[in-house]
Nucleic acid binder design. Structure first.
Ligand SMILES: [Mn+2]
Ligand SMILES: [Mn+2]
Ligand SMILES: [Mn+2]
Ligand SMILES: [Mn+2]
Lengths: 222, 222
DNA sequence: AAATAAATTTAGGCTGGTCTAAAAATGATT
DNA sequence: AATCATTTTTAGACCAGCCTAAATTTATTT
């Protein structure tokens, strides 16, 4: 069964929304917003994906991926993230530059290609944004990370990923000298506005807004 | 101006046909054959490419690329060949395996990506089939090669490329132990059927049919 | 339980890219 | 020069993927 790039993007969007959201199932309107398409167009595509048995679809109900649909969605995520690693590790792009190219590369069709790319890159477990890379069987390393904003205690942590992938946010992190793998020491937490005073790799103190903190993923220093 | 992958494939086909053929200009029927599309579909697309000023098109006349069209066609050829080098040099694919993947990769849109890929690969001048790779400005190293079938004299030559890219032909060469860069010594030329007796890298004699010889590109041993 | 608001689907239309069948133009043959 | 064959274009249709506007269903208020 042939699957178009457009269909792949819908599957990926459904997968992303259903894993980010709390309740199971994804609404037409959330897909419409996520994909920058009108709701009517989404309904159209949902019927096609349903015909191909890639999603569970009942009129007016939230949709979800079938086993096959999820398998495909995860395969696309795997490709996207591996290509991002390639672009950064091999071609020296910055972490805020890789997304748009990966958005195209993820649709290249060849299982052999992606397995060889994986081997070439040394089977990385995480992409440049700290997102986990599913293995060839579709298994994701489930990370035990937390958003910085969920933590009030002072202490030492490691910055391992971002929740937000927009260029502006990534550039902001770069501008304050924060990159994946850095040590973060929480020195102060202001409970009235949720902001933090932190130290990055023992450098002078740095204020972080609640909004930024909510998009930083950290783990305990081991 | 946006150019679709389909349009890019047409431009590439026109470029290939106009450089292979003797007379200038490309016919609707030759494009139809090359692209496995019906002539009516080709006419349709020719009008669109003409509207975009990528080709010179007059009803019932052979078409040719404009300056802009040729620039784009060469850029696609560059991308195709650089990706083929990547697949072979970095991902260890065989020379008969790379074409279909490159056919997809050539349409990835990012000038920066292709320049970095070029640098990563060490600015190769030829692809795995011996085809010249245009530089970033679109200039092709014009090679002074000849088909083996054009040569009758005994002597020493170097195998530098192929005229035919089909998998079966490439596998045949691999099976007789012939690869790019090998030394070829012409020991005998049979003028009645155009076949050859050659030695590859000084190994025992090997018969080569006229058909095969016409698809082998060689140059004088320097 | 009605009324209103919001989400979703249907209906109809458009573009890109393909097709088949028929018409028109060009080229070759007598 | 007229006829026949080949090539090319036109006409009309279809599918994927999008849109707007209108109809329908579901959710929220009162
Ligand atoms: Mn995509
Ligand atoms: Mn990423
Ligand atoms: Mn192509
Ligand atoms: Mn090649």
């Amino acid at each position: 069964m042939e699957i178009s790039s457009t269909e792949e993007n819908y599957l990926k969007a459904i997968y992303a929304l259903q894993s980010s959201g709390d309740k199971p199932g994804v609404s037409t309107s959330s897909l419409s917003e996520h994909l920058n398409n009108k709701a009517a167009s989404v309904t159209d595509m949902l019927k096609r994906l349903s015909d191909k048995k890639l999603i569970h679809y009942k009129k007016y109900k939230a949709v979800s991926l079938t086993k096959q649909g999820e398998k495909l969605a995860i395969a696309i995520v795997r490709k996207h993230r591996l290509w991002e690693v390639f672009l950064m590790e091999k071609l020296n792009f910055k972490w805020d530059e890789v997304h748009d190219m990966a958005e195209q590369l993820e649709h290249i069709k060849s299982d052999e290609l992606i397995e060889r790319l994986d081997a070439f890159l040394g089977q990385p477990k995480y992409d440049p944004h700290g997102d986990p890379i599913p293995n060839a069987k579709g298994v994701l390393p489930k990370p035990k990370t937390s958003a910085l904003s969920n933590i009030q205690n002072k202490g030492h942590y490691i910055f391992v990923g971002v929740n937000e992938h927009h260029v502006d946010f990534l550039r902001h992190l770069t501008s304050i000298g924060l990159k994946i793998g850095d040590q973060i020491k929480i020195e102060e937490h202001n409970s009235y506005d949720g902001s933090y005073l932190i130290r990055i790799n023992k450098k002078p103190g740095q204020y972080i807004s609640h909004k930024v903190a909510s998009n930083l993923l950290i783990e305990m220093k081991s």
